[in-house]
Nucleic acid binder design. Sequence first.
DNA 1: GCCGGCAGTTTCCAGATGGATACCATGAAA
DNA 2: TTTCATGGTATCCATCTGGAAACTGCCGGC
Lengths: 118, 118
Amino acid sequence: MKDCTVYKTLTIIGKKWTLLILFELDRGSAPYKRFNELRAALDTITPKVLVQRLRELEDDGLVVRRVDTTHIPITSEYALTESGTALLRVVAAIKEWGLAYKFDNEACRCTSCKMCGI
Amino acid sequence: MKDCTVYKTLTIIGKKWTLLILFELDRGSAPYKRFNELRAALDTITPKVLVQRLRELEDDGLVVRRVDTTHIPITSEYALTESGTALLRVVAAIKEWGLAYKFDNEACRCTSCKMCGI
DNA sequence: GCCGGCAGTTTCCAGATGGATACCATGAAA
DNA sequence: TTTCATGGTATCCATCTGGAAACTGCCGGC
């Protein structure tokens, strides 16, 4: 079962904060976001969990990290890959199911919801 | 965040055994499956977890339970609702993403994989 | 020489989760 | 009367997760 595509995918997106991080990276026009930028946007996330998720997403090819050493202080920047962008489109299908069959939550129909606004 | 459609949906399908139970209910032609039938098919699941998941799925409207009191011993039977069937179609989108971008696992392309064979 | 910002790291802790195992009530069959 | 099958319960326990809070190294500015 641990070799299963669906199982592995759910293991990725099912973890707390993962989708919120992906949405945050998708937001706005600038593709790259800095570590503390994400940290501030996600408000109550702890740096431990943020760095944990970012490393996992990097390992899974959903996010790329680049380090800017030309300016001081050195900054880390993160962006979605094509794979990560594609996953957000899949999440839209999940949302559609939820709205159609279960949670008729108006707050989630608009784009202001951090999690559903895709 | 706990009111979020995507979050709630992932909370449902992200739990261990949930999707396997849904797939098992979808398998074959008979819509209703008995408790011990599911238990045997899922092999290593414990009755505690199986009943836990079934109650959750019932509460979420993905599964219906009917009790047959006309025969002895009394049997409980479970079946997918329309909502549950629709969710399995969403899982297919997750699988497609996994196969396209990440896990090119041949075992998951065929229908023999319990988790991916939908 | 101290302070502050960046990007983390480290340690410890509490709660949730699932697994193992044993147990239970019912009623028919042997 | 014991045994069996069904559909669960009840208890205990190890593990896994994420949160809290403090700390680190680097360097530039004041």
